[in-house]
C-alpha cells in the first residue's frame, strides 16, 4: 500500500497530521497536566505547561470529597454487569438471527435498532416513577437493568454481524455429530466467536461507562457512577480547577485505556456492522 510520495510532502503531511491530532487531544492532555498542579498554579496567568510543583494532593482531596472509589466500583458493576447480562440475552438471539433467519429477521433487527432512536426523555418520567415505586431509584441493580436494556440492541447487532461470518456448515456438522443446541452454542459457536464477543463486550462496557442520562437522572449519592460523581463538580467552589482535573482524569482514565485497545472494533460496533 506504500504510495509513492516524496519525502517533503510526507514531512508536510506528518506535521499537519500531528498538529491536528494534538489539537484534538489538547483538552485531555491539558486536564491531565492540570491534575498534578496546585490550585494556584492551575489558574495562574499566563499558564504553565508542565506542573512546576508536582503534587498528588488533588487526587487525595477528590477521594475525600466525593469518594471516587465507591463511584468507580458502581461504574464497574453497572457497565460490566449490564454487558454480561446483555450478552446472555443476546447470544441466543443473535444465533437465531444469523443461523435460522426467517422473513422477519431483518425487520426485527431494524426494529431493535429503532428502539435506540427512541429518545430517553420520552420514557424518563414513567421510568422514574416506576423506579420510585419499586424502590429502584439510586440502586446499582436498577441502573444495571436500564443499562442492559439500552445497550441490548447494539449487542445483538454486533453479535449478529460477527456470527454471520461463521460458516453455518460448522454448526451443522456439530448437529450431525450429535450436539444438541446447548452444546452447539457452548462448544462450537462461542469459542469460534470469541474475538467478536470480546469486542462486543469491550465496546459495551465503554458505552455503559460513559452513559450519562440515566446514571444522572436515576441515581444520587448511593448508586452514583462516575458520571454522577463528576457531575457533582459542576458547580465551582472556590479554587477547584486542579481538583476538577484530577477527578476528570480519574473518571476517564480506565476507559480511555480500554478504548485505545479496542478502537478498531469500535467502528464496526458503532455502525452496527455497516462499516468494517
Amino acid at each position: 500500500m506504500a504510495r509513492n510520495v516524496s519525502t517533503q510532502s510526507r514531512i508536510g503531511f506528518t506535521i499537519g497530521a500531528w498538529l491536528v491530532a494534538l489539537l484534538i487531544f489538547a483538552p485531555i492532555l491539558w486536564t491531565a497536566l492540570t491534575a498534578f498542579k496546585t490550585e494556584a498554579e492551575a489558574i495562574a496567568s499566563p499558564p504553565t505547561f508542565l506542573p512546576r510543583t508536582f503534587t498528588l494532593d488533588n487526587f487525595e482531596a477528590v477521594q475525600d470529597r466525593s469518594d471516587y472509589i465507591k463511584h468507580a466500583i458502581n461504574s464497574i458493576i453497572v457497565s460490566v454487569g449490564s454487558t454480561l447480562i446483555g450478552l446472555a440475552i443476546a447470544i441466543p438471539a443473535a444465533w437465531s438471527m444469523a443461523f435460522a433467519p426467517s422473513k422477519r429477521t431483518k425487520d426485527i433487527l431494524m426494529w431493535m435498532l429503532s428502539t435506540k432512536m427512541m429518545p430517553a426523555v420520552g420514557v424518563l418520567i414513567p421510568i422514574y416513577l416506576i423506579f420510585r415505586d419499586l424502590r429502584l431509584l439510586d440502586t446499582v441493580h436498577g441502573l444495571t437493568v436500564i443499562m442492559t436494556l439500552i445497550n441490548l440492541p447494539i449487542i445483538v447487532w454486533m453479535l449478529y454481524t460477527y456470527f454471520k461470518e461463521i460458516p453455518v456448515d460448522i454448526l451443522e456438522a456439530a448437529r450431525m455429530d450429535g450436539a444438541e443446541l446447548w452444546n452447539e452454542i457452548v462448544y462450537v459457536l462461542v469459542p469460534m466467536a470469541v474475538p467478536g464477543i470480546a469486542s462486543t463486550l469491550l465496546l459495551n462496557v465503554i458505552l455503559a461507562w460513559n452513559e450519562a442520562f440515566w446514571t444522572i437522572t436515576l441515581t444520587s449519592g448511593r448508586a452514583g457512577t462516575l458520571t454522577a460523581f463528576i457531575s457533582s463538580f459542576s458547580s465551582p467552589q472556590g479554587l477547584f480547577l486542579a481538583k476538577l482535573s484530577a477527578a476528570s482524569l480519574l473518571a476517564i482514565a480506565p476507559i480511555l485505556l480500554l478504548g485505545w485497545f479496542s478502537q478498531r472494533q469500535l467502528v464496526r460496533g458503532l455502525t452496527f456492522g455497516a462499516v468494517k
Partner: peptide, 28 residues
C-alpha cells in the same frame, strides 16, 4: 439430526477451527 445416528462429511469439511485434530475427531 443429532438423534438420527448419521454422520456427514461436508464439502467445506466443516472442521472446528478452534479444536485440535484430536478434539475434532473426539467431538461426536
Amino acid at each position: 439430526p443429532a438423534r438420527r445416528g448419521l454422520a456427514m462429511v461436508f464439502q467445506s469439511y466443516a472442521l472446528y477451527p478452534h479444536m485440535s485434530v484430536r478434539d475434532n475427531i473426539a467431538f461426536p
